[in-house]
Amino acid sequence: MTAPVIELCDVSRRYDDGPPALHDVSLTVRAGEAVAVLGPSGSGKSTLLNLIAGLDRPDTGTVTVDGVRVDGLGEAGAARYRRAKIGMVFQFFNLLDDLTVADNVVLPAQLAGMGRGGAARRAAELLDVLGIGRYADAYPGRLSGGERQRVAVARALMNRPPLLLADEPTGALDTASGEDVGRLLADLNADGQTVVVVTHDLALARSCTTRTIRLVDGGITDATAGAGATESAR
């Protein structure tokens, strides 16, 4: 049985005086899984993602990712954790338009202290593997949406993170580009990358993940689980 990459235990998060964004959620994601988190707006998907990424803290419960107790980290520790453990892909790419594609991709490595030569070689390797090596010296604004999302994926993988988080990665793409990104995520998972995709898109979930969980009103209400994986909501 593979080791868990994500372990949430009895996690709850409430903002102000409203209903809980998450309520007593427990979730395990093991190395090599590809998990889709589905649910309507306001169901708790973004809160779950932010807790896993160390961008927020639970009110109760624990969040452990690749052996790190994320809920106990301070601001500086959380930043180091994200550089080492998390690759993030966003709906709107979040690329820097005044930097070339290659310079966008090497940024995480530079922040982590990797030497310039090693970072450049790693970036070139990723861009070639993802089929966009010819755009290394181009600027993001010259690329299609699907190509920019591939650049964002390359950047997310730069530091070889154990976990790739994708937040609505096809939300700003046309159908063909979205399908392309779905195939890319499936290929990455087939190569062993652990992936969690937060999405409204059931077709994307079916195309690139091996397990789905559904959030409604802050709790897991339905799950399709692989062997050895558990999730619960009380």
Score class of each variant (00 low, 15 high):
Ala3Val: 14
Ala3Ser: 15
Pro4Gln: 10
Ile6Gly: 02
Cys9Arg: 15
Asp10His: 14
Ser12Thr: 12
Arg14Tyr: 04
Leu22Met: 04
His23Thr: 06
Leu27Tyr: 01
Glu33Ile: 00
Val35Thr: 07
Val37Phe: 04
Leu38Met: 12
Leu38Asn: 04
Leu38Tyr: 05
Gly44Arg: 05
Gly44Met: 09
Asp56Thr: 05
Arg57Ala: 14
Glu75Lys: 13
Ala79Thr: 13
Arg80Gly: 02
Gly87His: 05
Met88Trp: 11
Val89Asp: 01
Gln91Ala: 04
Phe93Thr: 00
Leu96Ser: 07
Asn104Thr: 05
Met114Gln: 15
Met114Arg: 15
Arg116Ser: 15
Gly117Phe: 04
Ala120Trp: 12
Arg121Phe: 13
Arg121Gly: 14
Arg122Met: 10
Arg122His: 11
Glu125Asn: 12
Asp128Asn: 02
Val129Met: 14
Leu130Pro: 07
Gly131Trp: 05
Ile132Tyr: 04
Gly133Trp: 09
Gly133Glu: 12
Gly133Leu: 10
Asp137Val: 10
Arg142Trp: 12
Arg142Met: 13
Gln149Phe: 05
Arg150Glu: 06
Ala154Asp: 06
Arg155Gln: 06
Arg155Ser: 07
Arg160Gln: 13
Arg160Asp: 15
Pro162Arg: 05
Ala166Gly: 00
Glu168Ala: 02
Thr170Phe: 12
Gly171Ile: 10
Ser177Glu: 00
Ser177Cys: 11
Glu179Thr: 07
Val181Asn: 06
Gly182His: 00
Gly182Ile: 06
Ala186Gly: 02
Leu188Trp: 01
Asp191Gln: 15
Val197Pro: 02
Thr210Gln: 01
Arg211Asn: 01
Thr212Ile: 12
Arg214Asn: 04
Leu215Met: 05
Gly218Trp: 06
Thr221Asn: 12
Asp222Arg: 13
Ala225Pro: 07
Ala225Ile: 09
Gly226Glu: 15
Ala227Lys: 07
